[in-house]
Design a protein around this nucleic acid. Structure first.
Length: 154
DNA sequence: GCCAACGTTGGC
DNA sequence: GCCAACGTTGGC
């Protein structure tokens, strides 16, 4: 089993928004980065777990757990000219962008801020903390997942 | 295939 | 609002 970190801007889609979705499940659509796409298309498996991270807010923080509940599948929003990230050059017979469906697996009792993470030596080699990292979906080591979960009070 | 220009991300 | 980092684009 693998572990992942999913970034989202809370004013766009927050953990509470996920909790309000049917079955607390939602497609993680709109990703338009090849590396992130490859993770979703090729490496995620049903049952993998993830951390939900709120970016571009004050302070940025990890806020809860999620579970991957579908394999990678084509992201329908690429073909929708009215979606936020249409890609009209994508061929429906050979989709370019993929998503997975994620389900909420528990909100943290307390958020774990980015600055707090930076102060914890055991988290120092997390990809999230590396300079200039802009990936919205990235792998995370099990030990980091477990520690974040604990810091979040779960 | 190189690389300059440009756009985006996202912490600060 | 600034800017570092980095991905993408497109001319050559």
């Amino acid at each position: 089993m693998k572990y992942w970190l999913f970034k989202s801007e809370p004013n766009c889609f927050s953990y509470d928004d996920l909790l309000k979705c049917k079955n607390q499940t939602e497609p993680w659509d709109g990703v338009r980065n090849y590396q992130a796409r490859n993770f979703m298309r090729d490496e995620m498996r049903v049952g993998d777990l993830g951390i939900f991270y709120h970016s571009n807010c004050k302070p940025p923080h990890a806020i809860g757990l999620l579970e991957i509940v579908s394999a990678g599948r084509p992201d329908p929003t690429q073909f929708d000219p009215f979606s936020e990230h249409p890609d009209l050059t994508a061929d429906p017979k050979n989709p370019r962008w993929f998503l997975v469906d994620v389900r909420a697996r528990g909100k943290f009792r307390r958020p774990v801020s980015l600055s707090e993470m930076r102060e914890i030596p055991d988290l120092s080699d997390m990809k999230l903390l590396s300079r200039g990292n802009r990936l919205s979906v990235m792998p995370i080591e099990k030990k980091h997942f477990e520690l974040l979960k604990k810091l979040g009070g779960l």
